[in-house]
């Protein structure tokens, strides 16, 4: 086929610049990580990424991320619902503050959560007498990962709830459905893709999180040590290949998550497009 003709100017310049910049900043450096692992034989690679301490860190990282994302799925949906459907004093302020975890530096979030949930903190002092220790335990990791994933579910579900037509609910009611049936059979299916997307985003974000976790986690090997911290520890010991091997495992998982999220978003937009017709 002949060269495609573009009428608006700047196609070659903008696309060329985009690809160049993307390659220099993102693709080539990420490629370097994969290239670095080829210095290891597969056996060495496997031993490094399946060492007991590393395995324990995967369990914590993915387990706590999953729990955090689940908490966010439930309470994020509730928050989105409350923000869209109800009015109450201070609603606008609350709505604006939901994005705080996007804007607040993770280190600040880390020390703030630690201060609040430590044994002598505002909430920690209330919980500890009941035998619930949060700071410096895996529970603390869950708290931090819940914090940083909080806006995702709210912000993906909120617009879909807003666009939901009252008429479909009125139709359900006129057909004899009670409020719970309407929610369960009409509203939930409509927001399901968005909810799942938000959940996946929160999970993906939590898996890579470092700053907010290390302050509250206590960082005890085998117990409360997350995978990104192991990478840093190895780097500080100049074990670059070891650090990179673990990084590559995390990268591959991140890529899979990214693809899953893209798929979910596509599904979600298809659904919306259909309901908009």
């Amino acid at each position: 086929m002949a060269k495609r003709h573009h009428v608006l100017p700047g196609f070659n310049l903008s696309l060329g610049y985009t690809i160049l910049y993307l390659s220099l900043i993102v693709l080539i450096p990420l490629g370097a990580a994969f290239l670095k692992t080829t210095e290891l034989s597969f056996a060495e690679f496997w031993t490094t990424v399946t060492a007991p301490r590393v395995l324990a860190s995967y369990k914590l990282t993915f387990g706590a991320s999953l729990i955090g994302a689940l908490i966010n799925a439930v309470f994020g949906l509730l928050t989105a619902w409350v923000l869209v459907r109800y009015t109450f004093p201070g609603k606008r302020l609350v709505d604006a503050l939901v994005d705080l975890p996007f804007a607040l530096p993770t280190a600040v979030a880390g020390i703030a959560l630690t201060a609040v949930y430590a044994g002598n903190g505002w909430l920690g002092s209330l919980l500890e007498p009941h035998g619930i220790k949060v700071a410096f335990t895996p529970l603390g990791v869950v708290v931090a990962l819940t914090f940083i994933g909080l806006p995702f579910v709210v912000r993906t579900v909120q617009p879909v709830l807003e666009d939901l037509e009252a008429e479909t609910e009125e139709a359900a009611a006129s057909l004899g459905a009670n409020r719970w049936q309407t929610f369960h059979k009409v509203i939930l299916p409509a927001i399901w893709p968005a909810l799942l997307t938000g959940f996946a985003l929160a999970f993906a974000r939590a898996v890579g999180e470092y700053g907010s976790v290390i302050f509250i986690a206590g960082n005890m090997p085998m117990v409360s040590e997350i995978t990104p911290l192991i990478i840093i520890t190895k780097l500080e010991q100049y074990d670059y290949t070891g650090a990179t091997a673990i990084a590559v495992v995390m990268l591959v998982i991140s890529f899979i998550l990214l693809l899953a999220i893209n798929g979910l978003q596509w599904w979600s937009s298809q659904r919306n497009a259909k309901s908009a017709e």
Partner: peptide, 25 residues
């Protein structure tokens, strides 16, 4: 291309630092 632009969102910040150490360290 649009998916690739999203990549840095999915990468742990620790790994973001690491890749530059691998190149310039």
């Amino acid at each position: 291309l649009i998916t690739l632009i999203d990549l840095p969102f999915a990468v742990s910040p620790v790994i973001a630092g690491l890749i530059y150490v691998l190149i310039f360290g």
